[in-house]
Design a binder for these strands. Structure first.
Lengths: 106, 106
DNA sequence: TCACTATCTTTACAAAACTAGAAATATAGT
DNA sequence: ACTATATTTCTAGTTTTGTAAAGATAGTGA
């Protein structure tokens, strides 16, 4: 998984909004199981249509995947994609700074 | 250096634009010496006023610092701030994924 | 099968924010 | 004064944002 400049800009843009960053963080915490759209809406007290727009932006940026299960739709973080974003940012921004690997294993 | 959700969203938003991401990457490559505004403009073929707007957004997000030197203004990356952004993203997004420390020393 | 309900998305649209660049200003050398 | 460098102001055009209303999709039960 590799991100080019345009893909990175799109991902940053998607995360560059308070509501979307909240959604993303919530889904990260949910892990590989993901969350139903309704569950996200309940957690964040957001109108369904507003949430759908934001989810669509996150999906478009490649950060989130969705899968239908009956009537419900599961959203989950694409960890490969978001890890690629970390790598992009890390390589781009912290030249000369050796980072310690992340120990926060969920 | 620690970033809260709002600060992170602001930084992501600043990087979530093609022109600004280019500016940021250019300044990263320039390292601690930074670049004069005119030099950035020359590299990116961008009108001065447009560039000033984007620089202002990056400064507002805390990613870039500026310092006047005579007539010229030096812009340089605030590496602490951008490292904090990497940490935020890494902690938030890659739960369970142990990253290898960045070996790309400039 | 046909209506009914549940879950989500799409469409439509007004309000707000962002973007780009020219023109005007500010600041500092010469 | 004049020139060089950069920011601010202004304005037109575009994009984003939020939400209601309408539509799509999939179970449920008579």
């Amino acid at each position: 998984m590799e991100l080019d400049e345009n893909g990175a800009a799109k991902a940053f843009s998607a995360l560059g909004h308070d509501a979307r960053l909240k959604i993303f963080r919530l889904l990260v915490r949910a892990g590989d199981d993901g969350l139903k759209v309704g569950e996200i809406a309940a957690h964040l007290s957001m109108p369904a249509s507003t949430l759908a727009h934001h989810l669509s932006a996150l999906v478009g940026a490649g950060l989130i995947e969705q899968e239908r299960q009956g009537r419900e739709i599961i959203s989950r973080v694409d960890f490969r994609h978001s890890e690629a974003l970390v790598t992009f940012l890390s390589d781009q921004c912290c030249a000369g700074v050796v980072r310690i690997a992340n120990e926060n294993v969920a």
